[in-house]
Amino acid sequence: MGQMLAARLHIPSRTLRLEEVERPRPGAGQVLVKVQAAGVCLSDVHLIDGTLSPLLLKGDTVTLGHEVSGTIAETGEGVTAWSAGQRVVLHAGEVRDGVTYTRGVDYDGGWAEYALSSETALTALPDVIPFDQGAIIPDAVSTPWGAITTTGAVRPAEAVGVWGVGGLGVHAVQLLRAVGACPIIAVDPSETARERALAAGADLALDSADPALRETVAGATGRQGLDVAFDFAGVPAVREQALGVLAPKGRLVLVGLTDQPLAVVDGTRFSYLQQRILGHYGSDMPVALPQLLRLVQSGRLDFAGSISEVLPLARAAEAVEMLHKKAGNPIRLVLRP
């Protein structure tokens, strides 16, 4: 079958290595995809630095990359819905025997020249959508979309706050605008991130360190507070701040990942106001991806501005370092084999 290049993480040492490995062959019900673009996510950084660890990985090494697009190179036995040459977006995970496995975490992902996928874990990519934009929709876009439309159940004209306007949060602002949230208030300590939020459609962008934040949110919401607050930062202080400006029966949706404990400082107030805290992870790919691709194809959404830089696969370690240090404040870096 030949060899291919892949960026693989050795979990015990947290060492990322560029390696020549055997090109995989699709088994029954699988397709082999020639990777055209693969996103670099903060989750990848956290896997490398040890903040996150695979739970279902067989072995001690995995090819990273859960945001992947490409063309079908080969199909396995019994696959009839797909054929060589079709443009596709791979789902960020697969369900096996009732258990959800995450691509690039629990099994090999797309930081490689080729990637395997179950025939049910990919979606056709329209010709009008470039591979780099298609690649980032799983996770960078679909995760906030699921948080907004399903977990948070945001309704038109609801007041919404977004804490952390990075690779997911900036898309949340765009998507909240699309579903009619009003006002949309972005909160981030970075001036660049706040400017980015305003450009994406936020009505207000506030510094989390601003002592007047609570009063500003009250003024913008008619003294009612936020109907929904989203934490994309995964920081305990953010969650405390967001709870402090929630409206009665308001929802706090936790999207950012952290291993730190969750605390409700004033439990009596929280219960009296009947507020809720909701955890969120990923999205329902078979539903979310077609919806988002349709919105992009129709011109309702545009993620061209989200592609901060495209780098060759050989520079994977450099891309990780750039994202870790926020060099140039990237939204999404993309690797191209």
Rank of each mutant, 00 (worst) to 15 (best):
L5W: 11
L5D: 11
L9I: 07
P12L: 03
T15W: 07
T15H: 12
L16K: 00
E20G: 10
V21P: 10
P24A: 07
P24I: 04
P24Q: 10
R25Q: 15
R25C: 14
V31Q: 01
V31P: 03
V33M: 08
V35C: 09
G39R: 02
D44T: 04
I48F: 12
T51S: 15
P54N: 12
L55F: 14
K58G: 15
G59P: 04
G59M: 14
T61L: 14
T61E: 15
V62I: 07
T63G: 08
V68M: 05
S69Y: 06
G70F: 00
A73P: 08
T75K: 09
E77S: 13
G78M: 03
G85T: 09
Q86P: 01
R87D: 07
R87Q: 05
V88A: 06
H91Y: 08
G98P: 07
V99I: 14
R103D: 06
R103N: 05
G104R: 01
G110C: 05
L116M: 09
T120W: 10
L125G: 00
P126Y: 03
A140D: 03
S142Q: 02
S142H: 04
G152L: 09
V154W: 06
V154E: 04
V160T: 09
V162S: 07
G166A: 07
G169D: 02
A172C: 09
R177Y: 08
R177F: 11
A178E: 15
G180P: 09
A181S: 10
P183V: 04
I185L: 12
I185S: 03
I185V: 09
A186G: 08
A197C: 06
A200W: 00
A200Y: 00
G201Q: 01
G201H: 02
A202N: 01
A202H: 00
A202I: 01
L204A: 08
A209S: 13
D210A: 08
A220T: 02
A220K: 00
T221G: 02
G222V: 04
R223K: 13
R223A: 15
R223P: 06
Q224K: 14
V228F: 08
V228Y: 10
D231I: 01
G234F: 11
R239S: 06
V245I: 13
L246Q: 02
A247R: 02
A247F: 02
R251Y: 07
R251M: 08
V255G: 04
G256V: 05
T258S: 15
T258Y: 04
Q260N: 13
Q260K: 15
Q260A: 14
Q260T: 12
P261T: 07
P261C: 11
L262E: 12
V264G: 04
S271C: 12
S271N: 13
S271K: 11
Q275L: 07
Q275R: 13
I277D: 08
L278M: 13
L278E: 11
Y281A: 15
Y281P: 03
G282M: 10
D284P: 04
A288T: 04
P290I: 00
V296Y: 00
V296C: 11
S298G: 12
S298Y: 03
G299Q: 05
G299A: 03
L301T: 02
G305Y: 11
S308I: 07
E318L: 13
V320H: 14
E321N: 14
M322G: 10
N329I: 10
P330K: 07
R332T: 02
L333P: 00
L335A: 06
R336Y: 11
